[in-house]
Design a protein around this nucleic acid. Structure first.
Length: 304
DNA sequence: AGCTCTTCCTGAAAGC
DNA sequence: TGCTTTCAGGAAGAGC
């Protein structure tokens, strides 16, 4: 599933193919995951791809209208849009020659001026395609949290301070940090030796620092290995990544921990399968005879 | 406001 | 063997 390292790898690959290309036609299949299909068909043809960027797990094709007359005074006269793409679980974006066979579940074709077409495939259609005017881009992204690779230790600590939610839920929530999904949360928590169900507010300072470093290490190693291919993720050339070979816990239930040999276990945390080592990552206190009220009081803010 | 659970979708894998 | 059920998960939205 595409998370930060996979989207980053795809973005880097797409740049070589797409920058400077012009979209000449748009064809759509199923459109229930596209915010405004008519807008894509109407506004994309003629636009030139000026840049390809990533924001969290979002991919942006930055577009402009070539040779636009400055005297034109309609609202979108400068033609500055971004096609914003979220790959969801199974989304893929690959440039292909028009005569190459079309993969199943291909729902969007963007014909380019070099005879190729950029194809969007998405088996489960958890992805999203939206055309966002330049002026609305900031608002579109304003709710997203910090990029973990561009965050200081102090900012990271502050973002978790006083939060009573489980640490994994906070890391998965894109409003806190943008880009991490199930794989990289589990891998980072294993590396930091923190159980996914631990409450953020209950973590020791040293643990928070360890987590901060673990996340950055895991994400940057994953980028350098071109991401993890566990289901069907492939890059712009259709090639899989190789970070899945470095996974220490993800989908390793019952296998030995790389640190201590204990059998990796799986529990549901934040509605997700969560893999961890029961010896290296100590579970939070059991609820033995403790009432809900006791727990609320203990998790609350410290007395002044 | 903060937190947690449910829902969407398809195909692979497990269960009977 | 063949059919049915379960599971996987990003993020919006509901509910507490």
């Amino acid at each position: 599933m595409p998370e930060l390292p996979e989207v980053e790898t795809l973005v880097r690959g797409l740049r070589a193919h797409l920058i400077g290309r012009r979209i000449v036609a748009v064809r759509l299949g199923k459109t229930d995951f596209i915010d405004d299909p008519a807008a894509l068909e109407r506004d994309l043809p003629g636009k030139r791809i000026q840049a390809v960027d990533r924001y969290g797990k979002f991919l942006l094709l930055r577009l402009e209208t070539p040779d636009v007359a400055p005297k034109e005074t309609t609202e979108d006269a400068d033609g500055r849009y971004s096609l914003v793409v979220h790959l969801g679980m199974t989304g893929g974006l690959t440039p292909q020659y028009a005569d190459q066979p079309v993969a199943l579940h291909t729902h969007a074709f963007f014909s380019l001026d070099d005879g190729r077409e950029l194809r969007y495939t998405d088996i489960r259609r958890f992805g999203r395609l939206t055309l966002v005017p330049e002026a609305a881009l900031e608002a579109f992204f304003c709710k997203l949290g910090l990029d973990p690779l561009d965050t200081t230790e102090e900012e990271f600590r502050r973002r978790l301070a006083g939060r009573s939610a489980m640490i994994k839920a906070l890391l998965l929530d894109q409003h806190n940090f943008r880009g991490m999904g199930n794989i990289y949360c589990d891998e980072s928590l294993w590396r930091a030796r923190i159980h996914p169900a631990r409450r953020a507010a209950g973590l020791a300072s040293v643990q928070v620092v360890r987590l901060y470093r673990a996340i950055r290490k895991v994400l940057s190693e994953a980028i350098s290995l071109r991401g993890s291919s566990v289901s069907d993720y492939v890059d712009a050339e259709g090639q899989p990544g190789s970070y899945q070979r470095r996974h220490r816990v993800y989908q390793r239930e019952g296998k030995g921990c790389f640190r201590c040999g204990e059998k990796i276990r799986r529990v549901i945390v934040a509605g997700r399968s969560s893999y961890f080592c029961p010896r290296c990552q100590r579970a939070p206190q059991k609820r033995t005879g403790q009432t809900n009220r006791d727990r609320r009081v203990r998790a609350g803010t410290p007395k002044m």
